[in-house]
Design a protein around this nucleic acid. Structure first.
Length: 437
RNA sequence: GUGGAUGUAGCUCAGGGGUAGAGCGCCUGACUGUGGAUCAGGUGGUCGUGGGUUCAAAUCCCAUCAUCCACCCCA
């Protein structure tokens, strides 16, 4: 018999039970948070028509789209993100926007990149977006949700970086290199990573004059407290980027009303973001010491929906990278210990006592206590070892001596304390102990 | 897509042309009425896959796949 070697495409992975447990935990927490903010669920198909996705992300990103040519002559593609499919949904169902539509979506996306840790060819995005409002209130709410999510997962060493495409546009106009926006963004985005000298070299390589580089740096290197950054920006390029600065200022005031700790966000004029469809505020979360790239990214995308219908519908949203979130939590030891759902292990002292043990087991289960039986009693070492490894908190020992007195032994696996109680009330006893654990 | 490193037991890794190794885990016993310790014994591997060189390949060569790292980009 000829075997086919079991294998899996590079960058894809199976999600085994342990992993699924963590994912389930994180996803349900995210879902609850999204719903607390008024977002409603949506799913879209994994495949879209190829031309629905093209012309939205930018040339480089577009090269990473998995394209599928099917025999019926249709050209399809695996979705690259959840934002573009959403914009297609809105273009087809504009009645959803009355006057705003807030949706969340947790689904896989595919990108043909070379995989690394925290970078997969299939990964899960958890998106929230608010459609139909150009108010900065929506942007602030998105940032607030990001903040709350990071805190509630136990992250402390993180920063939400915020900038505005309108400020970048202004900067480019100011430096008088209007046609080089993308090259400039790509270089300055790396400022923190590779340092200013290398960024200078890169810019020079892109045929940007020394004078222009100087101007760019005078903007990009602005730093300090929130209001100081904004007023410095205003002084430098207020004339051409006033709107961008005003928007950030408005966001800041909303964030403070929403009670967001201002130590966790920062206005960073060097933040660029790669995707073409952003038009206004952009944001990104970087976890310090996790070295895993950005975990959350987003921004305002006011013109995307209009590309399908010509109807201008503004929108803003963000995307959480589920795998990166979990990888970072694992690295920083923030994942909760996932223990078994079993509450009681029924332990027959010997095989003769199995029938009787089964009756106790059935009683436990009908009382709503999650219970299992260790079926082949050999040694207590083995039996208790099993309970211990699995994290089962209680053992109900059915043994001859106690039984002859009409009693059962309940052992607390953590404290190693064991008590006997009468058969009539062992369920009450167990439930009492469980409620205290 | 470009460059580099790695692939040996369930896990972490050593070995470097001539019988496949350690630690941890797991199983068993000391301990037939009580688990995380200790001690003793045991289980476990086509050395990623395919081909080549050789009397002989886990070892050398080529290819391939996978993982990691940097670039690129991003979640």
């Amino acid at each position: 018999m000829e075997f086919i070697k079991p294998r899996i495409y590079s960058g894809l992975r199976d999600r085994l039970p342990e992993q699924m447990n963590y994912r389930g935990l994180v996803v349900s927490k995210l879902q609850a948070l999204f719903e607390r903010y008024g977002f409603e669920p949506l799913e879209t198909p994994a495949m879209e028509f190829y031309d629905i996705l093209t012309g939205k992300y930018g040339e480089e990103a577009e090269n990473l789209i998995y394209r599928l040519d099917y025999k019926d002559g249709k050209t399809l593609a695996l979705r690259y993100d959840l934002t573009v499919p959403l914009s297609r949904v809105i273009a087809m169902n504009s009645e959803l926007v009355r006057p705003i539509f807030k949706r969340y979506q947790i689904q896989q996306v595919w990108r043909g990149e070379r995989p690394q840790r925290g970078r997969y060819r299939e990964f899960t995005q958890c998106d929230i977006d608010a459609i139909g409002s150009k108010s900065m209130l929506q942007d602030a709410e998105i940032i607030a949700a990001i903040y709350e999510m990071m805190i509630s997962f136990g992250f402390h060493q993180f920063e939400i970086l915020i900038n505005n495409r309108k400020i970048l546009d202004g900067m480019v106009k100011y430096a008088e290199v209007g046609d080089k926006l993308k090259e400039i963004c790509r270089s300055i985005d790396k400022l923190e990573k590779i340092g200013q000298e290398k960024v200078r070299q890169e810019l020079a390589k892109s045929d940007i004059s020394d004078q222009a580089i100087k101007k760019i740096f005078s903007i990009v290197e602005i730093e300090g407290h929130h209001e100081a950054v904004l007023s410095d920006l205003e002084k430098a390029i207020g004339g051409i980027a006033q709107e961008g600065v005003n928007e950030l200022r408005e966001i800041r005031s909303y964030l403070s009303e929403l009670g967001i700790d201002e130590g966790y966000y920062r206005f960073d004029p060097a933040l660029a973001r790669g995707l073409d469809y952003y038009t206004g505020p952009v944001f990104e979360v970087v976890i310090k010491d996790a070295s895993i790239g950005s975990v959350v990214g987003g921004g305002r995308w006011d013109t995307l929906i209009g590309q399908y219908t010509g109807k201008h519908i503004p929108a803003v949203g963000t995307s959480f990278g589920l795998e990166r979130l979990i990888d970072s939590m694992e690295k920083l030891n923030l994942l909760p210990q996932i223990t078994t759902k079993t509450q009681v292990l029924v332990v027959p002292f010997n095989t003769e006592l199995i029938p009787q043990s089964l009756r106790f087991l059935a009683q436990l289960r009908s009382a709503g206590v999650n219970s299992e039986i260790y079926g082949e009693p050999k040694s207590f070492r083995q039996t208790f070892g099993y309970a211990n490894r699995k994290g089962i908190p209680l053992a109900l020992v059915i043994a001859p001596d106690e039984l002859s007195n009409g009693q059962l032994a309940i052992r607390n696996m953590r404290t190693r304390e064991q008590e006997v109680c009468s058969i009539d009330c062992f369920i009450d006893n167990i439930q009492a102990i469980l409620s205290k654990i």
